[in-house]
């Protein structure tokens, strides 16, 4: 091997030396776990409709139920194991959003309920609300001009 002198050479060399994530295996696990979570959501949705809820209420119930399950599994220290196995499969569905709110709430409890739980709850999920809500306001403003 030639001696490495520049940062660029070193960066290329490190890229070559660093193993890649097992992407095929990860994608397979993400696919079936993610699909399964959505399917559970679909069955809850069908059940709500069967019980006579309208479609907006049904999908809200689906969200709340999945968030509840995710929060429960997070507090039992099970969700992080699912997340390690499934990666985006549990992160991308609404369960990942719930986990990213519940996990700092548990972790920062040691700093007190106000500044710890209350203050740090959105360290991971805060950006989702900031960007999601801001984008929806922009969409709404544009819509108000068009309509």
């Amino acid at each position: 091997m030639k001696p490495i002198e520049t940062k660029q050479e070193y960066s290329d060399y490190v890229d070559k030396k660093s193993p890649d994530s097992p992407i095929l295996k990860n994608c397979f696990n993400a696919f079936w776990v993610g699909g399964l979570i959505c399917t559970i959501g679909q069955l809850i949705l069908e059940f709500c409709k069967y019980k006579g809820f309208d479609s907006q209420a049904s999908s809200t119930i689906v969200s709340i139920t999945l968030i509840g399950i995710s929060a429960f599994l997070t507090s039992l220290n099970i969700f992080n194991k699912i997340g390690k196995f499934a990666g985006a499969g549990s992160l991308v569905p609404i369960t990942g959003f719930a986990n990213s709110i519940v996990s700092p709430a548990i972790e920062y409890k040691s700093e007190g309920y106000v500044m710890g739980v209350g203050g740090k709850m959105f360290t991971v999920a805060g950006p989702v609300l900031v960007f999601g809500i801001s984008a929806s306001v922009i969409v709404g403003i544009i819509a108000s001009f068009i309509i």
Partner: peptide, 24 residues
């Protein structure tokens, strides 16, 4: 649902984006 998650997994493995950025 599974396919949307696979897109997320490719982003995680190929771009080194943090979970918060993936969600955003």
């Amino acid at each position: 649902g599974g396919f949307i998650c696979v897109i997320g997994q490719i982003l995680i493995d190929k771009t080194k984006l943090t979970p918060a950025k993936i969600l955003v």
